[in-house]
Amino acid sequence: MDDLDHEVLINIFSHVGPADVARLRAVCRTWDAVIQQAEVARAVLKRTWGITDLVGYPRKKSLYLVAGLSHFAIQHTCRYWESLTSVAVHYNVDVAAIRVLNNLISEHSLRSRQYVFVPVQREQIRGKAARFIYDKVVDRDLIIISDNIDKLLAGTPECEKCQIAILDDGVLKLSQLLGRGLRIDENTAKFYLADAGGDLKKAIKLFEEDRRWEFKGQ
């Protein structure tokens, strides 16, 4: 059994579940090496959930095997007349579930979003195309599903563009805010903000680190 071709082993492993694959790594070196190939993990994920096509890669490799129902979502583009309730009714899910998945605290914070992620049922995933994404706004690794693979291929980069556009507009306000908070001039604030990739908390941390270093020098 130890001289099976790698191709055959990959085929075999793609038929067992995620937990089995993770456990089988401990069998022997050959199996461990084969299982570590991304191909196997992708095949297992596709077969476990009945996904037809899989686009993109996760940030962490472990997501392939530990992906649960909570990682799957539909990306819904918000229109201005929509409310959380209308989205919830449209997809037949709980309002609270959408809030949790999107870190939405209040109803009107929906206005600041281009899109929301809608949780799905297990049966909805079967037969769909899927794509790995990491969303900065909700800070989650997600697998979004869609009937149409072209939509997945084309859709997401556009959304990323939107995020950057918001950033440019918001950068001015944020740097003013940061400047006032830390009592530094706006340009310095802008520098730290850019350094932190637009993350306010990180910018403050970076600034404090620098100041500490300065004081140490004296």
């Binding site: 059994m1 075999i12 038929h15 067992v16 022997c28």
Partner: peptide, 25 residues
Amino acid sequence: CEGIANLIRGKSPQHVRQHFGLVNN
């Protein structure tokens, strides 16, 4: 492959090794 996968599913590594005559290297 599906047949073999059915044999493997839910078994511990030791069990699989025994069953298929694999050596723990």
